[in-house]
Amino acid sequence: MNIFRLAGDMTHLASVLVLLLKIHTIKSCAGISLKTQELYALVFATRYLDLFTDYISLYNTLMKLIFLVSSFSIVWYIRHHKIVRRSYDKDQDTFRHYFLVLPCFLLALVINEKFTVKEIMWTFSLYLEAVAILPQLVLLQRTRNIDNLTGQYVFLLGAYRSLYILNWIYRYFTEPHYVHWITWISGLVQTLLYADFFYYYFQSWKNNVKLELPA
């Protein structure tokens, strides 16, 4: 464990908590893409299959449980909570995210480190996580006015990925055998997707204006 990875995990945890806090307190999911949340739930479900078989550390197991419970409860809130669901803008959240699932699965079948069920599901979850933010970014472009909790949520997600890249650089130099090209490339692609959001987020923060994404 290194500081970059710990900071990355904490930032990731914060992003989920910000989202849960937003939905639970103001009972609204305005501006949040259900499709991105469903993709994240699927990412965690396929990545943490080894939750009960491979014990790595208490921290690892605890965090996996938190991410699983929070991502599925966010999906439940937006789908089924009688008040929250009313604020879900399904007409705007139209990204066909099922079109992301199949290519990621096929890619995982072709490019993986080991051809085993667990490894393929793990690789699939990596590729899926890289593109899972797309419905949310498309929704932000559409709705234009981004409330600051949603903006903070996406910002924290981007920060978590950036910190993970620093973690991989650190591990590459400190652990001789640590080479995971698949993780690094899909992680890099994912972080690049946030780049333009970051740019506009900092612009709005610097000029102290409301965050607006170009149409």
Partner: peptide, 10 residues
Amino acid sequence: NDESNDHDEL
């Protein structure tokens, strides 16, 4: 320790 594991990251 958890460094040796293949997929020890979240």
